[in-house]
Design a protein around this nucleic acid. Structure first.
Length: 613
RNA sequence: GGUUCCGUAGCUCAGCUGGAUAGAGCAGCUGACUUCUAAUCAGCAGGCCGCAGGUUCGAAUCCUGCCGGGAUCACCA
């Protein structure tokens, strides 16, 4: 039981003895007292009025008196309307800080024996990672860390979308136009190299399409199929997919290639393997740069046929039904969802089938209690359906499924569109933000005594700190506007601001010879210091709440607020030259714990802390 | 059209298990570095919390309706 819980139960006991009413301490509303009032914690007594059949003034007075008489850590109280403000003793706050200092791994819960699998990233292997992936990766990584801190055993995974028509497009383009070039000979990072051929395919396809549009065949399609009021341009835009599937040579080549791939054609498989390896080696570099990793990889090429057993099983149970053409469906209209197909009429899998099978595979592999899918919000409906299906199939892990949905990223100029070349490339972005940190540091000159490698390491930590914090401080479900200028900002509500708080503390701690002083409980803690102690005491509940709601942004905001409190304290209070030995010892203990919590909190976000900057 | 998410300061966002006079950062304007790192601090200015009802002692927060924006409603993934 922590100190706040002690206070809560003391209040519950006071209510019991003064009003003879049993009330759970978790039903009490207790908040830190607002700045403009006198007190440390506030009990809101309004909700108690009907239960205690009394008025706020009387309730406040009775409880206040009782608490002061019975608990020596309550030193004073005042009542304003339905608010009972309590002052707690100096010793109480010393003890709160002492508890934190003694905690084994502060902010961490003991193991709860549960396993959770977190899927994130899940890229296609036809182009390099972009900023959307970065948001996905940072959310997934951070959630994993937060869940670990909350007592779960976490398995980090990704499903690699390594097959399909899109991959065949880049393969085909390389085969047709690549003339044996490799990333090495071209001197291009290997995933970007593959991406180049994906783009090349699109370019060649558009050229082909354009020629066709002007041909007699194209014009006759236009006149026969154009809807009323539709311009030529709009028609051909809408027709593009159909053209790809029905008229295009390149489209046919790509589809043929997919079929050859499915049939295990040696040549196609060889190209496929080669190009995917290039992509993986590129991804690996990006992941490493971002400081993230995975425990287990699933490849779509190995899972895309899964799920048929579950479909057969579900048919037997009456969860699914068969249409006359042989396709298999599920009707979820009673759950406000639609009818969904789970097996094509030719007996092949769809996306849903695959995901059902993959979930089952993962359960077999790890026996997890929960599975978290970090996937953009455009797939909300899919995951709702998937989870409902798994529930109906009575999968043992069905209750532990969660889609961590995040909003897409917009640029100040509008949406990111790969076709229009407005995607922000992950590698470019990382370089840019490190460069910004470099400029900033060189300008300050603070690191000029370090060797180049040490400097570069700090630039990396600070730059990535800026980028990561910028993205993760926003609530995941919100669409976010990504302004490159803001993302490299190092002032104010940013990663470097928090890193700077840590660096300032390190700088002090490096200058002193710290040893635990004699009893410092006699030191009279100031209001600013008390706020910091209180803030520190909130860390474990912030982490738990972030885990419960899958929102790393809560930890991010906590770290910022704590840093802000520290910066202010640092400005106003001397530490090394404190007015007394007791004050000095107390403050050193305080800042030591702040540095630990900041480092731990930022670690949960995947942000490293430099000792200098 | 159905479903769903979002709407808070000029901009980017907190606050949403209902609690006291709605908070930060950026941008703008003032001021503070011979001092423990100024990537900092202090101050000024900036708000029909999308709109309208309802529930409540109390609503940015909960409910309903509307408005605006996004996503989705494929034998695509």
């Amino acid at each position: 039981m922590n100190r706040l819980q002690v206070l809560q139960s003391a209040i519950a006991k006071a209510i019991q003895s003064e009003f003879d009413l049993e009330i759970g301490s978790e039903d009490l509303t207790i908040t830190p007292t607002r700045k403009e009032f006198e007190g440390d914690y506030t009990l809101v007594t309004f909700p108690l009025i009907p239960k205690l059949k009394s008025n706020p003034a009387a309730i406040g007075k009775k409880l206040g008196e009782h608490l002061m008489a019975v608990n020596d850590f309550v030193t004073n109280y005042n009542v304003i309307k339905g608010f009972l403000n309590l002052n707690l003793s100096n010793l109480y706050w010393h003890q709160v800080l002492g508890d934190i200092a003694l905690a084994d791994k502060y902010g961490y819960q003991p193991s709860n024996g549960q396993k959770v699998l977190v899927e994130y990233s899940s890229p296609n292997t036809n182009k390099p990672l972009h900023m959307g992936h970065i948001r996905n990766i940072l959310l997934g990584w951070s959630c994993s860390k937060i869940l670990e801190a909350s007592g779960y055993e976490v398995i980090k995974t990704q499903i690699v979308n390594d097959r399909g028509i899109a991959i065949c497009k880049s393969m085909l383009a390389w085969q047709k136009f690549g003339e044996g070039v490799t990333p090495e000979t071209a001197g291009i990072k290997s995933d970007h190299f593959v991406g180049k051929y994906y783009v090349l395919f699109e370019t060649k396809f558009q050229e082909e399409y354009k020629v066709w549009q002007e041909s007699a065949e194209g014009q006759s399609y236009l006149s026969q199929n154009r809807k009323e009021g539709q311009s030529d341009q709009d028609f051909f835009k809408a027709y593009k997919n159909t053209y790809f599937n029905e008229n295009s040579n390149l489209g046919k080549n790509a589809r043929d290639m997919l079929i050859s791939w499915e049939n295990g054609d040696n040549d196609v498989r060889a190209i496929w393997k080669q190009m995917n390896e290039w992509v993986y080696s590129g991804f690996d570099q990006t992941y490493e740069r971002l400081g993230v990793s995975f425990d287990k990889l699933y490849y779509e090429s190995e899972t895309y046929l899964l799920g048929k057993d579950q479909i057969a099983d579900g048919l037997g149970k009456g969860v699914f039904y068969k249409e006359n053409d042989g396709s298999v469906w599920i009707d979820m209209e009673d759950a406000k969802l639609d009818k969904k197909i789970v097996l094509r009429s030719d007996g092949t899998s769809v996306y849903m089938t695959q995901d059902i099978g993959t979930a089952e595979l993962r359960y077999k592999d790890f026996g997890v209690d929960k599975m978290i899918y970090v996937v953009a919000d455009e797939q909300n409906y899919h995951f709702k359906s998937l989870f409902e299906i798994l529930k109906r199939l009575e999968a043992p892990y069905a209750a532990g499924l969660h889609h961590l949905s995040y909003g897409m990223i917009d640029l100040p100029t509008g949406k990111m569109k790969s076709r229009e070349g407005t995607v922000v490339d992950a590698d470019d972005l990382i370089e840019e933000v490190i460069e910004e940190a470099r400029k900033s540091a060189i300008e300050s000159g603070m690191l000029s005594d370090l060797v180049k490698e040490q400097q570069e390491e700090i630039f990396r930590i600070v730059g990535l700190g800026a980028l990561k914090f910028f993205i993760i401080k926003v609530n995941p479900q919100k669409r976010m506007t990504f302004d490159p200028k803001q993302s490299v900002d190092m002032q104010g509500q940013t990663g470097p601001y928090i890193q700077n708080a840590y660096v300032r503390i390190m700088s002090i701690l490096n200058k002193i010879d710290f040893r635990v002083e004699k009893n410092i409980h006699g030191y009279e803690i100031s209001g600013v210091e008390k706020d910091l102690v209180m803030k520190l005491s909130e860390f474990p509940s912030v982490v738990l709440e972030a885990a419960r709601t899958f929102e790393p942004s809560e930890v991010a905001n906590y770290c910022f607020v704590l840093s802000k409190g520290f910066h202010r304290f640092y400005h106003d209070f001397p530490i090394i030259k404190a007015e007394s030995e007791e004050a000095k010892a107390f403050r050193i203990m305080l800042i030591t714990l702040i540095s630990k919590v900041l480092k731990e909190g930022m670690f949960l976000l995947g942000v490293e802390m430099p000792d200098r900057m």
